[in-house]
Design a protein around this nucleic acid. Sequence first.
DNA 1: TATTGTTATACTCTATAACTATA
DNA 2: TATAGTTATAGAGTATAACAATA
Lengths: 168, 168
Amino acid sequence: MIRTMSVPTRPKPARPHEPGDQARSDELVDLLVGVVARQRRHFENCAAQCDLSPPQATALLHLASPVPMRELAERVGCDASNVTGLVDRLEERGLLQRRPLAGDRRIKLLALTEQGSEVRRRLHRRVYDESPLVAALAPGNRALLRDLLREAAVADPERPQSVTRGAR
Amino acid sequence: MIRTMSVPTRPKPARPHEPGDQARSDELVDLLVGVVARQRRHFENCAAQCDLSPPQATALLHLASPVPMRELAERVGCDASNVTGLVDRLEERGLLQRRPLAGDRRIKLLALTEQGSEVRRRLHRRVYDESPLVAALAPGNRALLRDLLREAAVADPERPQSVTRGAR
DNA sequence: TATTGTTATACTCTATAACTATA
DNA sequence: TATAGTTATAGAGTATAACAATA
């Protein structure tokens, strides 16, 4: 477990073309890049274990409750035209249904079937309970990391809000 | 700036089906998911500003020095057959060259051209110097986050090692 | 025999643009 | 006129399998 006071301070390398604490910033970004790669692999593994492509898995996570196709596109972060094919495949597999919305017949609500909900639950559990990143941390450091990430998340203008947003 | 001692400890929600500090772990994973999404957007923006697709940008970052096609495939994390097309496009744009390796005529070394190196430098600078995540953190917390991420990275079996590995 | 790179093939994801049916 | 969803199209990324050249 890391203790704040004992974080090692390193001598400045004083590289020519780089400002102040650049070296440190580089390493931090490298670590973030590593986190991204690992988290993505983790997510892809989870998806594959549920027989889903990553985009399909992402879509499923966003369908905790019924959602218009348009909104799914926004949540997943792709063009609306893609959702048609994506949803076609999920519907063929019996994981969801297109349902009309009373009051606006243009809209189709995407609702998980019983089976779809089950798959979503399995996927969700895997993604969240088996995160290698969290597992690698000493329990006492998790709250610390959480607070740092909260801080890092604050300043972002297009920050995703809830559990299932931006999963991929 | 977060001080270790003042990290708030929250009462346990005691949710039925979840083990111990599950709620906390969920939030931590959510934050990681958010970080991943943001970092990925950042990377995609940087790539787009250099007129590169994300995989192309990733490849470029891995070509600080000449590398056989096979190894690039490993670094980028895709099948070797994909590299052919990827490299074709980069070569057509004059960003790199296929060069023979003296001593083993099966191998083609991928070497950046002058222009390719320039684009790579621009890309690298953007990715590393303009990270919104690092920018959002109080300078004093960066070293702390770095140490936590180092710890989180240790346990991973397929962890990427260097600056430009696993960039995407 | 094994390895490097290529090709052929197929599938998915992606965006743009044009279309339809509704509003 | 605007919006929701679809279709058509095109391009890129991905994997598998078979292949040629080389080791």
